[in-house]
């Protein structure tokens, strides 16, 4: 089943075309990586899908329905969640509360009137939050204030928040950016484990080619806003246009 498709998607910033007529499809259970040089329009494309940005033209469909008219939280409620390029967490809340916020939205919807209901009675929310923290390896730090976490753990929490939303499609924008080699490795392990355990469909934006080639079913190459190539890791490795435009002729 096709989970996500964009149709002739265009985004212009003034005169700059950041997304140029992109037709992208993501099938269920597929792991797709988007690569491309700096400023190629990868983040812009992700932001269009999450409704953080309005497209100039074109359509975005999720599970067959257009999501272009929706608010960001509605898109999340439909099942698209995103981890940010920088650790975007709730700094003064505990690690557990960070996960619970996302679990609350997943379990109880975008809004409710339960302002006189004690939080401790939301067992479903606690369950999801606990499982998520467990799978990102932060359960033993659940009572830490999020801002006190080391940077790598903050990024894992960021991914944890996205997972706690129980998405059908997870968009990850450079989850390893700014990480040390060890942190990168544990994050990649985390992504692989999530892929195995949850059978999650995801779209990954990543600069580290090693990660990209090992983790993806399919790779999409963006340059100047447009898709210049797409295919399996092997096909992309051998693609001359890609070598020219992006990899600069470096042997992979």
């Amino acid at each position: 089943m096709t989970l996500l498709e964009t149709e002739n998607l265009v985004k212009e910033f003034g005169g700059l075309v950041a997304t140029d007529d992109v037709n992208l499809t993501v099938e269920e259970d597929e792991r797709v990586s988007i690569i491309g040089p700096n400023g190629a329009g990868k983040s812009t494309l992700i932001n269009l899908i999450t409704r953080r940005l309005d497209p100039t033209s074109g359509d975005i469909r999720f599970k067959g329905e257009s999501i272009v008219g929706l608010e960001p939280h509605q898109v999340v409620q439909r099942g698209v969640s995103k981890s940010f390029q920088t650790a975007s967490i709730f700094p003064d809340l505990t690690v557990r509360e960070n996960a619970e916020i996302a679990a609350l939205a997943a379990e109880r919807g975008a809004f409710g009137f339960e302002f006189l209901k004690h939080r401790d009675s939301l067992t479903d929310v606690h369950g999801v939050a606990r499982d998520t923290l467990d799978s990102v390896g932060l359960l033993d730090r659940a009572d830490t204030i999020a801002t006190d976490l080391p940077y790598g753990d903050k990024r894992r929490l960021e991914i944890g928040i996205a997972l706690a939303s129980e998405p059908d499609l997870l968009l990850m924008d450079e989850p390893t950016a700014g990480m040390s080699p060890e942190e990168t490795k544990s994050t990649v392990d985390l992504i692989e484990r999530v892929k195995r355990d949850h059978g999650l469909t995801f779209v990954l934006v990543e600069h580290d080619m090693e990660i990209v080639f090992s983790i993806s079913d399919r790779i999409v190459v963006l340059s100047r806003g447009g898709i210049i190539a797409e295919g399996t890791p092997d096909e992309i490795r051998g693609n001359e246009a890609v070598q020219e435009a992006y990899l600069g002729g470096v042997e992979l």
């Binding site: 999450t50 999340v76 709730f90 916020i101 609350l104 939205a105």
Partner: peptide, 30 residues
């Protein structure tokens, strides 16, 4: 009671990072 309800947590989340609250699927505006 409000502070110990889901609202208490959501209010603080909005204070801390309004954009993220929207992007975990909460209707921040309401």
């Amino acid at each position: 009671r409000i502070l110990n309800s889901p609202y208490g947590m959501v209010f603080r989340a909005i204070r801390e990072n309004e954009q993220r609250a929207e992007f975990v699927g909460l209707n921040v505006w309401r």
